[in-house]
Amino acid sequence: MDAQHRVADFFDRHGFEGRPAYQALDLASEVGEIAGDAAKSTTYGEHPEELAVKTDELGDALFSLLSLCNSLDVDADEALTAAIEKYETRIAERGDPGSGE
């Protein structure tokens, strides 16, 4: 069973309903905790080589993202494939994966 289905199964087993607006806010909060770890461990970017992010925070963010995908009926693997293709195209066209915006 892939990660997205494991999250959906967890919701089903516990009778949770996906509420996209709540899940989007939860995802932002979890990513903020990762950013907090990064800021603190690198002394706000002064020492990037000392980056330390807690594995459980990464897991929380991944869980939140997959929950959001499920509640919006988005296949996470298809979304990831599309994103990689977009970045590959940008690299081929401009030599950089950034959006340029």
Rank of each mutant, 00 (worst) to 15 (best):
Y87G: 00
S67G: 15
S64A: 15
D96R: 11
A83D: 10
F16W: 12
G95Y: 08
E88N: 12
H5W: 04
F63D: 00
E85C: 05
R90M: 02
E78L: 14
G15P: 06
K86Y: 05
K86E: 14
Y22H: 11
E49Y: 08
K86D: 14
C69W: 01
D12E: 15
E30F: 01
L66I: 04
I84C: 06
P48M: 05
A8M: 06
G36C: 03
V31C: 10
N70S: 12
G100L: 04
A8W: 02
E85H: 10
P97A: 04
Y44V: 09
E49W: 10
Q4T: 08
A82D: 15
K86H: 08
D9M: 13
E85K: 13
G59R: 03
L25V: 11
T89D: 15
A8D: 04
D9F: 12
A39T: 07
V53S: 02
E50T: 09
Y87E: 09
G45Q: 05
L72S: 09
P97L: 06
H5L: 11
E101G: 11
A52N: 09
G100E: 00
D12A: 14
D9E: 15
P48A: 03
G18N: 07
A3T: 08
K54Q: 13
A82H: 08
A92F: 03
A8T: 02
E50H: 11
D26T: 14
F63K: 02
G59V: 05
A3N: 09
I84V: 15
I34S: 00
D96S: 14
